[in-house]
């Protein structure tokens, strides 16, 4: 049994370890380790296309995660106050947002947005007083919105689970002591659900930062980091991609470990 488990963990981590190892290879070979070098990192960091894509990805991930954390938490709190049927509708829609394959979400969003833009742009042009009317098109906004959907569902799910495990008695005590609902929320509920919100934020950030397929459809002419990496991979395996991959891995690793740590708190708290 032990041997089998060890083998599975090796299976999970050896390929990643190999990518990291060869990112420090001084040669171009993917099978022979010639010597230690950080030249591929230097090369990656001075690649302006790559740095642009990275910056885009960071902006998109941060914005969609903030949106998801705020609106997702609000939705989780709102759903607590709903009756059975409406609650089931929201449960179903959020579950759909998580379960419908990314490729379908990407396509459907593309189709819908192109139609909506095609309808709105002439109206906007007609109503615009100046010379150059703004033109709605695919780009940052559409990626942020599409990532926001999945992330919001994720945050709602996590925060809702946390609210469900909260002790009702302390909220009632607060109300009995004449605290206003807002004070009770700020002093009692919010501090207790904060770790879950933060964990949700980090997972949303990680999801958006790593997502390829949704962005691939709705990015328009913009490039995110996964789109750039995907295009490079199709041109061939190079140590520079290993260096990028290693940096992406380290970033996601930090996020998920912090998120796990925050989620852990909840189990020791009560």
């Amino acid at each position: 049994m032990r041997a089998l488990i060890t083998a599975v963990y090796l299976f999970l981590y050896a390929p990643i370890a190999l990518v990291v190892l060869f990112s420090f290879n001084s040669g171009r070979s993917a099978s022979e380790f010639v010597g230690f070098s950080t030249q591929w990192y230097a090369k990656a960091l001075s690649n302006t296309f790559l740095m642009d894509a990275l910056q885009n990805s960071l902006v998109i991930a941060f914005t969609s995660a903030v949106l998801a954390a705020v609106f997702g938490t609000m939705a989780a709190l709102g759903m607590e106050r709903l009756g059975g049927r409406m609650r089931a509708v929201f449960d179903g829609l959020f579950a759909a947002a998580i379960v419908v394959p990314g490729v379908v979400i990407g396509i459907a969003t593309l189709v819908a947005l192109v139609q909506v833009f095609g309808f709105l742009n002439p109206l906007l042009a007609a109503a615009w007083p100046g010379e150059q009317p703004p033109k709605l098109s695919l780009g940052f906004g559409s990626i942020i919105a599409a990532h926001g959907l999945f992330s919001m569902a994720l945050v709602t799910m996590i925060v809702k689970a946390r609210i469900a495990s909260l002790g009702r008695d302390i909220v009632e005590a607060s109300n009995d002591l004449y605290a206003t609902p807002l004070t009770t929320f700020r002093e009692i509920v919010l501090p207790q659900i904060m770790p879950s919100i933060l964990a949700g934020f980090l997972l949303a950030f990680t999801f958006s930062f790593d997502d390829f397929i949704i962005a691939f459809f709705v990015a328009g002419s913009n490039t995110t980091l996964p789109i750039y990496v995907f295009a490079s991979i199709r041109r061939g395996v190079t140590p520079e991609i290993n260096a990028i991959a290693t940096m992406v891995l380290v970033a996601s690793l930090c996020m998920i470990l912090i998120a796990r740590f925050l989620m852990r708190e909840k189990k020791t708290n009560n």
């Binding site: 999970l12 390929p15 190999l18 790593d210 395996v237 992406v248 891995l249 996601s252």
Partner: peptide, 17 residues
Amino acid sequence: VVPFWTSLLVRVYAWMY
């Protein structure tokens, strides 16, 4: 859990390698 939340693209790339 950790590998699930790290880039699938990178993990697939490792196997191309």
